[in-house]
Design a binder for these strands. Structure first.
Lengths: 207, 207
DNA sequence: CTTACCTTGTGAAGAAATTCACAAGCCACC
DNA sequence: GGTGGCTTGTGAATTTCTTCACAAGGTAAG
């Protein structure tokens, strides 16, 4: 199978969300055109995106909402539960730990870490914040799949190195700093400052 | 001036961050190659990105760190203060309101809104949560530039319509739902679920 | 069974973004 | 003031992504 672009995978996630909406309304089939309208793209784009993975539709009819949703869940690897650790118990880390949306999608937060002794041992929700020094040992037992990093920019690379050494194969980075990880580790960075600056640019350079 | 791609603007923001790092270390000049290495891109990419806006470098020497940083701040519109309102006083909204990183960049949070009467009137940090019903009236006086939406997906479009009617020209959406806004309103959506699903895909379809 | 009508899947065309590669310019040293 | 060594700025080539456009295949109705 040829390499799938990042942007394609993002759109697949979106399509899945729309399909789940359609499922709720009891709609049985959907056309590429309808999916495109919902997602602000074109029907050709939708069909191309799907065609990398197979032929899921019926000509003249469209796609079975339920079937296509299941295919997308398979493609995206959402059929299983992923074990997530959050490193950094600041404002954003706390917010994420308590965010219910993740559980629904099969992302289960198994632990929250911090290095600040004043935070270690405190409770949030159902989590007791653990000392980051324990991370490597814990990982041997709990085998987390994904680490979410909500630590200050200056600590981010060191923490990334730590979780990679602990065997984590995917990192979601909220620190405003680009990280380096080995080739076999997946990395995504969410940089909110960048988004705001993008808006600042748009406001400044208005037509 | 020709249309600048979104991805270019993102990279400019990154370059600015790196330049500020270099400023701190006292470095006076920097080559496109050095900037590229820091940002995980290529020197040609850096030069192309900058060339859309002018010639800021000196051949044989590179760029003046301080000068280029100032140019980028001008281009990105970071020379002034932007007035930001946060709508939705849930976990993420709270985290953002307390996040210090925004202030440093000139994004000043002027108000936090929610529609839940139990939240309205409560204090966080220096903010008293206001009733969303007041938003339109407040906006006439406070003239916010940017609205950050941290409301549930189902309410997001209605809230977006509300802030647009109130005159806000830029929206940063954290709700996992695509929004529609008029052409003259800038919109960015940050969808954390999408990022996690991207990691799930990467973990599942590993070589 | 045949006709009229839809919608998919996909090569080919087109657009956009990235990379190449090199002339032009600048500095420093002799 | 000439020479050698760097690094920029930028057209051209390349690669990647998106859109076009249509044959192929399917439904439904008569």
């Amino acid at each position: 199978m040829k390499r799938i672009a990042d942007s394609t995978v993002r759109r697949l996630s979106l399509y899945l969300r729309f399909l789940e909406e359609f499922e709720q309304t009891g709609q049985l089939t959907v056309s590429s055109e309808a999916l495109a309208r919902r997602g602000g793209t074109t029907s050709a784009q939708v069909r191309k995106d799907l065609s990398s993975f197979g032929s899921f539709g019926k000509r003249g009819l469209g796609y079975s909402v339920h079937e296509l949703a299941q295919h997308l869940r398979d493609i995206l690897g959402l059929g299983r539960e992923w074990r997530v650790i959050i490193v950094g118990a600041g404002n954003i880390g706390t917010a994420l730990a308590q965010y219910r949306g993740f559980e629904q999608r099969g992302f289960r937060v198994v632990a929250v870490y911090d290095r600040d002794p004043r935070k270690v041992g405190t409770r949030w929700d159902s989590f007791v914040v653990r000392d980051i020094a324990r991370l490597a040992d814990d990982a041997r037992v709990e085998r987390p799949d994904i680490a979410v990093l909500t630590v200050p920019a200056d600590d981010a690379q060191a923490v990334a190195d730590l979780v990679v050494r602990a065997g984590v194969k995917a990192v979601l980075n909220f620190a405003p700093a680009p990280l380096h990880v080995p080739h076999d580790v997946a990395l995504k960075t969410v940089n909110m400052a960048l988004e705001l600056e993008g808006l600042s640019y748009a406001l400044t350079n208005r037509d």
